[in-house]
């Protein structure tokens, strides 16, 4: 049975309204201030350190993103931490607030499908994050130009644009999760707490747990231990498990793209490195290829979580 009309009818209306709501909201302002100030602090440290020991680095601009000066982590690491917070902040009350304000049945009584409402909300939140990240990206490039005085090369711009795209999908995963939870839980507070709980678990606890779980699944061969080496089987398990966390995927993809010397993201045997010129940067295309699986993983996570939410929302009762 085919539905009459387009599922996207009204999508642009919902999108524009939600975007306007997000951009004018106090919540968004706070999130933006938080991100801009922490990012500026990281950048300031990075610029300072780059000015003091200016090396012959062909990718000076990219170093702005990745250099970390204790106690501050690098710009990318800070974003890896704050982007989920922003996405959760924009998504945790997407659907349940419509229920609680009792606007849902009134809106759905207009000639639109539920698809338009959910998709409009998702895209508006993603666009909000995209706009903020693009602004942040321009800020980094601009500060780099002013304080380092080196014009960025085409490849650097290309690599940093890949960073922007991957970061938006990384936000998409968390946004899908937050919207999914806003459909499951009727109370926005519960949805927010559960989202933040999952975020903390995956970013803080999961990296600590994976070695133990990997050890349990594939116990290390004692012969490796005798030689003071890691068992490759255990190491591979640990990394695969760690990759379940979007945080790790984002980190790996960024490592590949923003540090052009990165040749691989997994454990390698020495013989695989035979003939490699250590420390030589990879071409742009090769770096993107290394980051490709991680990027696809983030896109897939976004789509799967959104699809879950979509199915639940279609089946949900409208009445409060």
């Amino acid at each position: 049975m085919r539905r009459e009309g387009s599922p996207f009818q009204g999508l642009s209306t919902v999108f524009v309204k939600e975007l306007a709501d997000h951009i004018s909201s106090v919540r968004m302002l706070m999130l933006e201030l938080l991100i801009v100030f922490t990012a500026l602090a990281a950048l300031y440290e990075a610029i300072n350190s780059l000015r003091q020991n200016t090396a012959e680095d062909p990718f000076l601009l990219l170093r702005l993103f990745t250099i970390d000066q204790a106690p501050l982590p690098s710009f990318v690491a800070i974003l890896g931490f704050l982007i989920p917070l922003m996405a959760i902040g924009l998504g945790f009350d997407a659907v349940n607030s419509e229920h609680n304000r009792r606007t849902l049945s009134r809106i759905l009584a207009q000639p639109i499908y539920r698809d338009a409402l959910l998709m409009g909300k998702f895209l508006a939140a993603l666009a909000t994050i995209g706009i903020s990240l693009a602004a942040l990206w321009l800020l980094v490039i601009g500060l780099g130009l002013i304080f380092l005085g080196v014009p960025p090369g085409g490849e650097e711009i290309a690599r940093s644009l890949v960073f922007l795209v991957v970061a938006i999908f990384y936000a998409g995963v968390w946004l899908s999760l937050a919207i999914l939870l806003s459909i499951v839980f009727r109370s926005p507070a519960t949805a927010a707490l559960v989202s933040l709980g999952i975020w903390l678990f995956l970013t803080v606890l999961w990296p600590m747990l994976t070695p133990a779980i990997a050890q349990a699944i594939a116990p290390a061969d004692p012969r490796y231990a005798l030689l003071g080496l890691n068992d490759p089987a255990t190491a591979v398990w640990a990394q695969e498990l760690l990759r379940l966390s979007p945080n790790d995927l984002f980190g790996e993809a960024m490592l590949a793209v923003l540090s052009p010397t990165t040749r691989t993201l997994g454990p390698v045997f020495l013989d695989q490195l035979r003939g490699a010129v250590m420390g030589a940067p990879l071409p742009f295309g090769e770096s993107v290829m290394i980051a490709w699986p991680q990027t696809v993983g983030l896109v897939a996570g976004t789509i799967v979580l959104f699809a879950f939410g979509y199915v639940l929302f279609q089946r949900q009762e409208v009445r409060a």
Binding site: R3, E4, Q9, D21, R101, T103, A320
Partner: peptide
């Protein structure tokens, strides 16, 4: 059930305890 848009285009609905966007 099959042509909801046609129905909803011509029918107005005021739900129980209707809500609006307060802001």
């Amino acid at each position: 059930a099959r042509e909801p848009l046609k129905v909803k285009r011509r029918v107005g609905y005021l739900p129980d305890a209707v809500g609006f966007y307060d802001q």
